[in-house]
Write a protein that binds this DNA or RNA. Sequence first.
DNA 1: GTCTATAAGGTGATAGAC
DNA 2: GTCTATCACCTTATAGAC
Lengths: 200, 200
Amino acid sequence: MTTEENIINAAKEVFVRKGFQGAKMQEIANEAGINKALLHYYFRSKEKLFEQIFSGAFQQLIPTLSKKLDETTDLETFIRFFVPFYTNFIQKNPHLPQFIINELSQNPDRIRNLAATKVFPFPKLSRMITQAVAENKIRPIENEQLIINILALIIFPIVAKPMIEGVIFNQNAESYQNFMAKRSDEVIETILNSIKPQKN
Amino acid sequence: MTTEENIINAAKEVFVRKGFQGAKMQEIANEAGINKALLHYYFRSKEKLFEQIFSGAFQQLIPTLSKKLDETTDLETFIRFFVPFYTNFIQKNPHLPQFIINELSQNPDRIRNLAATKVFPFPKLSRMITQAVAENKIRPIENEQLIINILALIIFPIVAKPMIEGVIFNQNAESYQNFMAKRSDEVIETILNSIKPQKN
DNA sequence: GTCTATAAGGTGATAGAC
DNA sequence: GTCTATCACCTTATAGAC
């Protein structure tokens, strides 16, 4: 592993754990097993380092999703694919959504350009929902409400992990893991039930 | 308004906007229209000031909820009360959940004692759900899954506001407000639909 | 490329005048 | 109670030897 890759991995870890302000160059250097000066040798400043890390974070995610959306026409099929797929991605990058939310609310300009199109392929899914409603396959619901419902059910339990472990599971990490193992199926069932067409 | 109240209001604002690390005593002083020294005169340290702020944040919330839970036996009735009530509280304190989540994941010890019992009256609601399942009033679902579903649908759109405004609504603040105005009803409908007993 | 040393500026906290 | 001035420390960034 090159020094540069080494730094990137260390920085990703620290940035995402501490946020931009909380992350210290010294801590990144320690984590990478080098010294501060070398950080500035490879990446002129903390800002530059940050941008490099962040712009790469979502690059694995969006192409896959867009492709799947192009191949799929049925909303239920897409949801059954999307929920475990996105859950899995976020479980592998558990601090990422919280990090994005934090940075967007503290310094929107820093990552707005980066985040705008890379977080979620919104328009395609939106059209799919509109169509499903028009065809009476699901109950009437606004695109945005349904999309936020899905994202909320997936993302919240991961972002709020420390809160949930503390308040709901009394600091019991095993209970939380147990809970998360069943989460994906539960979200699918919750979503599909919630949009079933109403009986007349 | 006394200087002390002044400081508390300013500090609440800044802490919740920037997190513990990001909040600077100078910024709090500016926001309060005084100087740094006076902060330390009233509250010995940044830590002390922080504790004072935080421990007061939830004190209005929990008593009301507990009382309502004692008065209510029907789950649907409670949900119809709880969703708009909690939504309203969080809209008035929009940065609070994000703040708690952040601080819990960055320095759990700092607020664990404060947060543990004050965020949510979990056990009472849990028993109510167990009973509703046993009586076939709702489909089989684990208490924790349902409670997290409810909290997720309420809290996420507020915590993730900057992300949603950016990605879903193209920086259009009015669209977001419009979305939030309908949110409470939508959450109730989503939740109640999602737990309807299954047909045989 | 990698290091040590240090500059330049910020941050929490205190001393002391009024 | 409120202020100015200042201390001690920390953080980013750079200079310069190897």
